[in-house]
Amino acid sequence: MRAIQEFLYRIRIDSIFELLAYIGFFYFLFKRFILHRAPVPSSAFKSVPKELLAECVTLLKKKEKAEYGVYRVPEEILSILRADLRNEENLKRLLCSICAHLGIDGGFIKLVVEDTFMSDRAGEIATDLAFTTIRLELKPHYTPEAVIAVLAHEAIHLHLYYAGIRMRDTWENEILTDTAAVYCGFGEYIYAGYAVMRGEFAFSYQKVGYIRQEDVQYIWKIMQKEEGE
């Protein structure tokens, strides 16, 4: 007991913080290099019920009036995107290409590229039919696939708005939007773009989107099953 009291007397608060930092560092190394997992707790991302994903696919199959093939970013746009992710002229061309796949004229959409400090959003759309603005939060850690996925998500919002397809509440509507992005041919970019990315700070990880990669796989599975029926 006396030894414990002497230890507590000698230890300082900065020593405690230093010890915790070492514990966190070794935990990171263990998960990253031993378990080969990104040290991101699963609780950080809200789980999407499979029943909701299935409901979204059923709704889209019932309401969508057109069939969409697999979308491919034009090679010229993709090359510039990989070389200079912040080229706003190229980002607008990318948005127009995505919209064209959906039968929408993207030329009338105003694209605003931002990097708002501590923003928790990846993109945002505002429209009243006459005027439409899409805001893209372009973070330093974003990959080209993440940018494509975010712009596809926002364009799908507009597509669903025009088609009058929506779910009951805001969160379910976002799940519907991500599901529709997969349904309308953007699945490969949603899958790649919604992967967990290294964040801006040491040992930090981030992701965009409302669904996870396993959800994209499940949506594909449902679509393949319904196509076979």
Results as ranks from 00 to 15, higher is better:
P39T: 12
Y22I: 08
G106H: 14
E89H: 03
E145Y: 06
F131M: 04
E154Q: 08
A146Q: 08
S79P: 00
A155P: 07
A146K: 03
A202C: 03
V150L: 03
I219G: 06
V70M: 05
A146N: 03
A44Q: 15
L53R: 01
S15R: 15
E145V: 00
W220P: 11
T143V: 00
R37N: 13
C56L: 03
M1V: 10
D169A: 05
E226A: 10
E229W: 05
V182G: 04
H153N: 11
G209E: 07
R2N: 14
Q224E: 15
G123Y: 00
Y142D: 02
S43C: 11
A100E: 09
D120Y: 05
K50D: 02
E154Y: 04
Y22Q: 12
V150S: 09
M118S: 14
A38L: 10
I98C: 05
L85E: 00
T116P: 01
Y27T: 12
S43P: 07
Q5G: 03
L111P: 05
R212P: 08
K207F: 04
K139L: 10
K221A: 09
S42N: 13
F201Q: 12
F45H: 14
I11R: 14
V147S: 03
K92V: 05
Y183C: 01
S79F: 02
Y183M: 01
R82V: 01
G187S: 11
F7K: 13
I125V: 14
R93E: 15
R82W: 01
N90M: 02
T143D: 00
M223V: 09
S119W: 01
E6K: 15
M197C: 03
L91V: 07
A149F: 05
I11Y: 11
Q217F: 04
T177D: 02
V208C: 04
I190E: 08
R168M: 11
L78F: 13
L52V: 09
I16N: 04
L91K: 10
L53V: 02
N87I: 00
